[in-house]
């Protein structure tokens, strides 16, 4: 469940709608009623307003805390630090991006083995996004030239062909800047 919410675009979209739809329904109903149905001033007292204000702000702060705290283990800095401290040593891979292709030190990985992607750009700003075979973005990295490296540790959980794409606009053939990596079953 949390995996779906924080590790896929559609999870983010679900949370988006959970916030947007209640707001839309309540706000538009109030505007419509007070504009077209009954625009008389309501008899709401200052004490009522204060009570509602307290409830509303408590709700907002609580929701903000919950969605951020629940996201912590899905933050790349966090899962990278966790993997680095784990028992299985991460495999280091260097990624060099240059208009409009990637040069990687390895293209094949195994399920369950942590991989540290050390990526950098040799010319302009590029991205390095790895897509799950079903189309979800697993992570994207922004590569700014002159910066030593962007890096994170990712552990693949399913075998398949993963697409790599550049998600930072980098000129006339930006849309052709892509590659593929293969993930195989664990050898043992």
């Amino acid at each position: 469940m949390l995996e779906f919410i924080y590790q896929s675009g559609w999870g983010a979209f679900t949370v988006l709608l959970l916030f947007q739809i209640p707001f839309l329904l309540v706000f538009l109903t109030i505007v419509f009623r007070k504009a077209y149905v009954n625009s008389e001033p309501s008899g709401i007292t200052d004490a009522d307003v204060g009570k509602w204000r307290g409830r509303w702000l408590t709700l907002v702060v609580a929701l903000f805390l919950i969605i951020n705290l629940a996201s912590i283990k899905f933050i790349p800095a966090v899962y990278t630090a966790r993997a680095a401290a784990g028992d299985v040593a991460a495999i280091d891979v260097t990624v060099e991006a240059q208009s409009w292709s990637y040069d990687m030190s390895a293209y094949e990985f195994e399920v369950g083995k942590p991989v540290r992607f050390n990526a950098k750009s040799l010319d302009t700003v590029h991205g390095f996004a790895v897509y799950h075979p079903d189309g979800d973005v697993l992570f994207t990295m922004m590569l700014v030239p002159g910066v030593s490296e962007s890096s994170l540790i990712y552990t693949f959980t399913e075998p398949g062909t993963y697409k790599v794409r550049c998600l930072e606009y980098c000129g006339m053939a930006h849309h052709d800047m892509s590659d593929e990596i293969t993930v195989t079953e664990a050898s043992s």
Partner: peptide, 22 residues
């Protein structure tokens, strides 16, 4: 306000890594 919701979602670090550049 609707847009604000989409903005704070991508401002969460975990989600940003799926949505940035899309």
């Amino acid at each position: 306000i609707l847009d604000g919701v989409s903005a704070i979602i991508t401002s969460n670090i975990a989600w940003s890594f799926q949505l940035h550049g899309t």
